[in-house]
Design a protein around this nucleic acid. Structure first.
Length: 490
RNA sequence: GGUACCAUGGCCGAGUGGCUAGGCAACGGUCUGCAAAACCGUGUACAGCGGUUCGACUCCGCUUGGUACCUCCA
């Protein structure tokens, strides 16, 4: 068991040594998507970030239960359209579909996109709609503890009475007094004692489709409740890691803490991990800003902001080249750079096959491996890990050029290090197109032979013709010292 | 207004109290019939102003600029 992992805890604003509550078991809960639209770049970041963390914790030998929920009961939309309309219900009316039909449709697409990004499946992927009973039970606990009140068939969390005993705002650094003086006046909130009280249960208005019976009304659970209920159900009242995007810090995660404290008398988890957001041209992407790019559009290149398509692995590499706590700005140039960098890394990996070992090593492989581990141990620093791997690529190229030498043992270590960090931990996949069936291989062999003979006769018109024509169908000829190679591009 | 965070070379993006991040681009070179590809080499940048220090890009303060959250959003 590795002892050196340090991670940044949003709760303490410090890097802390990771010490699981019940090693070797680790419980991790991450806020998943609301399935009423296609996944976009913003969904890719937490998915890839926590995939990296999941992979690394397993690599260290922990037995991780990773929960990532699916929100399918809808959250409230309060602006413009009045209070309390359910997002999924709204879309359902527009498209004349059952709410669950929409949720299922987008869940399926989300999974497909995550698979393309080579994001591992979580251990459990609970749906909010499947845990209404647990959520109702949690509300009852909160009411019994004196921190919830019923009003007009809805139930609200009493932030003021809670804050007399606990610090509401300790995760996001807020003070209740500030909340009091700064909360905007929203219409139709007369049911609440205080404007910053949040709903635990909302009574459904006429026409509202997604609703369930409860002791208080036919309605639906409030927006912070599902995570509290489902994390407790599968990980217990106190677990190791809770993650999500920084935009969820307040009020979502803050309220989760309050709910758990109110119901169970303790914080839900030990470490809070938040990934930063992706911006587009320096601005955040959001559904309401209409500047988001879906993964589908990224992969196909069909979006006005995109100069070309970008493969799933390019997106994954792009995300991993920045530290998860830093903002990452999207641009075509940045993605193109990531695309080329990824290719360089993969070419380096493939070049390992060309190395012939010697009796002695002039390169240092062990320190390289240690640097990789140190990078990951330092709050999952994937950019430093990648930089170290590029140092490895330079080492590999020098070995291929026979400017350096390496023993069989070191070569094995180098190969296993690359295997572990590139594929097992960073989760990258070599996307180079298949060169095709054996017959095509033989055909290309023949063509290359013809071109070779033409060149030997100095018949460059023929050799260039072959090269140009192949290039037209995206087959690239590369002349190397050991003869010509070919590869399918794009 | 409150809260949180950030300002690094042409671009993306790490990191550190004194010693090379890395990738892309650019430039030079090797290779090549010419190319392409590939590989090698080259960049003293850290918003501004003060302070602490033998020494700060790295710590502290201020200023300026930016982003996010406070309202659905990863």
């Amino acid at each position: 068991m590795e002892e050196g992992l340090r991670l940044y805890n949003t709760l303490t604003r410090m890097k802390e040594l990771f010490q699981p509550l019940q090693s070797p078991f680790v419980g991790m809960y991450v806020c998943g998507p609301t399935v009423y639209g296609d996944a976009h770049l913003g969904h890719a970041r937490p998915a890839v970030t926590f995939d990296l963390i999941f992979r690394y914790l397993r690599y260290l030998g922990y037995r991780v239960r990773y929960i990532r929920n699916i929100t399918d009961v809808g959250h409230m939309e309060e602006e413009g359209l009045g209070e309390g309309e359910d997002k999924i219900a709204k879309k359902a009316r527009l498209e004349q579909l059952e709410p669950m039909e929409i949720a299922q449709y987008y869940s399926n697409r989300y999974h497909a996109h995550m698979t393309q990004l080579n994001v591992l499946n979580p251990s459990i992927e609970p749906q909010a709609s499947g845990h209404i009973i647990e959520q109702i039970a949690l509300i009852e606990k909160i009411i019994d503890a004196g921190f919830g009140y019923v009003s007009e068939g809805s139930v609200y969390f009493d932030v003021e009475s809670y804050s007399r005993q606990h610090h509401y705002g300790k995760l996001s650094g807020r003070k209740v007094e500030d909340l009091l003086s700064n909360t905007r006046d929203l219409e139709g909130q007369s049911e609440k004692r205080n404007p910053f009280d949040f709903a635990l249960w909302k009574k459904a208005r006429p026409g509202h489709i997604t609703k369930w019976p409860s002791p208080w009304s036919v309605g639906f659970p409030g927006w912070h409740l599902e995570c509290s209920a489902m994390s407790a159900k599968y990980l217990g009242d106190h677990f190791d890691i809770h993650g999500g995007g920084m935009d969820l810090l307040f009020p979502h995660h803050e309220s989760e803490i309050a709910q758990s404290q109110a119901a169970n008398g303790q914080d839900p988890c030990k470490y809070w991990i938040h990934n930063n957001l992706i911006t587009i041209n320096g601005q955040k992407m959001g559904k309401s800003l209409n500047n988001f790019i879906t993964l589908d559009e990224l992969f196909s290149g069909k979006h006005e902001l995109l100069e070309k398509s970008f493969s799933p692995m390019t997106i994954r590499f792009f995300i991993l080249q920045a530290h998860y706590r830093g903002q990452l700005d999207f641009s075509n140039d940045a993605l193109k750079a990531a695309e080329k960098g990824l290719k360089r890394l993969m070419d380096g990996w493939k070049s390992l096959e060309k190395i012939t070992p010697s009796d002695a090593s002039t390169v240092q492989v062990k320190p390289l491996q240690e640097q990789c581990l140190e990078a990951m141990n330092d709050d999952f620093n994937s950019p430093v890990l990648i930089a170290t791997l590029f140092d490895g690529v330079r080492m590999i190229n020098s070995l291929v050029d026979k400017k350096e030498t390496i023993t069989p043992e070191d070569l094995t270590l180098l190969r296993s290090t690359f295997q572990a960090f590139i594929f097992d931990l960073l989760g990258l996949v070599d996307e180079a197109p298949e060169t095709g069936s054996g017959r095509i291989e033989q055909l290309m062999e023949t063509i290359i032979q013809i071109r070779k003979h033409a060149r030997e006769r100095k018949d460059f018109a023929t050799s260039d013709f072959i090269r140009d024509e192949l290039a037209r169908i995206n087959i690239q000829i590369r002349d190397t010292k050991d003869g010509a190679e070919w590869a399918v591009t794009g």
